[in-house]
Design a protein around this nucleic acid. Structure first.
Lengths: 232, 232
DNA sequence: ACGATTTTGTGAACAGGTTCACCAACTCTT
DNA sequence: AAGAGTTGGTGAACCTGTTCACAAAATCGT
């Protein structure tokens, strides 16, 4: 990296384009949240140890992660809360709000539409659509449910790039197809279904049942180790 | 492992107690879902390649994962769908339903209470509690919302070990404390809050905003690489 | 019966992420 | 101004997880 740096401007671009490890990217929003809380409490300076306890990771991990964004701390002092917050916000693209479209206005859909706290984290639910004619036209908080017929129009008119699937499992794939065709390139899928998308489209899967099943596995192990007189 | 095997019974116990890698545990529920679908379609035998495409992972990964549960496939043939399904179900403790308590009957809480598909995956929402007197007594699907006062009683009477937190962020920690004190040792937390729990208690965090922020980061990179004439 | 074919199970190589240990750079005290 | 104390940045070691490559074991066809 050092060898390629020809001037300061290119250095900045290279840093922006530089690959930040996935694991780090997944933690940056946590740091951002922690730093915002610190800022709200009037803290102006913090050490990696501070952020570590606030975000629930090790301080070494924090420092390593932050090193990927460049050097913004001062040795012997720590980080400027505001500056670091801004730097992370810029890195993960939170300088503006991202419009997202929500497909499915059932129980989960309405919970998501009503979710407080998207706003101050760079996410804005710009449209909600559903297949059910009975739901079209109803209000979900401040937003009116639209027909799924208008999905492509809504996406294109608003320049939406991120979609949320909150439909029953059997509808998920066809919804994904329609989202992608209309220009969405990132999907958050709540349906317990593996969806196929073309290369270049990112999918993240949230499956509540899976999370609980993982916990159940560990519970079972705890029970077994007690019963069987297991480890310690 | 081979060297320590004194008899068949101890072999089985050792296998059950053996540490299965976390990454594998997280995928087993996916395999279970995929196998159940195959079984429903009348498929009786499948190769690792079959499961791989159904679950969205590589076949080598499947085989490695399954090797942690022991040898249940037949070379040149594949796996018996029913047998493998049973084996995985047994491993992750899905031989019976796990009762869970849900704290918070707001938008998200009602979505979770109404969630179809817990039932056939070993999860049963046995109790829902809320702080708001206006919600206590109301029905969420088939279950009646109870007062948070009865939290400990409900947990103890039903022998509940798993709790779900679906409250506003500022209530999450105190709810977690009460859950743990009442005997819960696994928590699924939907509140965007880091909760502190004593050792021995498992916590899994689901943060919708974080998921979207991660997607937003990648979107930003896509946009930057187009604008800047980035990597091909 | 035997070679061709299929598919599992697994050691070995590889990749990615975390933790450790320590140097460098800053502040504070005297 | 100099030493003591603090804290960020970072290479190295370590650990976990994934992919590769292939032998072992089964079936199938002839």
């Amino acid at each position: 990296m050092n060898l390629l740096r020809n001037d300061a401007l290119e250095g900045a671009q290279a840093r922006r384009r530089a690959q930040i490890p996935d694991a780090t990217v997944a933690r940056l929003p946590l740091y951002l949240r922690a730093l915002s809380e610190l800022a709200d409490r009037g803290v102006t300076t913090c050490s990696s140890e501070h952020v570590a306890t606030a975000a629930g990771v090790s301080s070494a991990n924090i420092r390593k992660d932050l090193s990927h964004l460049g050097s913004y701390g001062t040795r012997g002092v720590g980080y400027d809360v505001q500056q670091l917050r801004d730097r992370i916000a810029e890195t993960i693209g939170q300088t503006h709000n991202w419009d997202v479209i929500l497909v499915g206005a059932g129980h989960l859909g309405s919970a998501l539409a009503a979710y407080q706290g998207f706003g101050n984290r760079g996410i804005h639910v710009a449209a909600v659509v559903d297949e059910d004619p009975a739901l079209v036209g109803t209000k979900l908080g401040s937003i009116t449910v639209d027909s799924v017929e208008n999905l492509a129009t809504l996406i294109k008119d608003n320049g939406i790039l991120i979609g949320i699937i909150a439909t029953p499992p059997d509808a998920a794939q066809s919804v994904a197809d329609r989202l992608v065709e209309a220009g969405v390139t990132s999907i958050l899928n709540f349906a317990p279904t593996l969806i196929q998308v073309p290369a270049g489209v990112d999918v993240r899967q949230v499956d509540v049942a899976v999370e609980l099943q993982i916990l159940a596995y560990h519970e079972q192990r705890k029970a077994a180790s007690v019963k069987g007189g297991g480890v310690t």
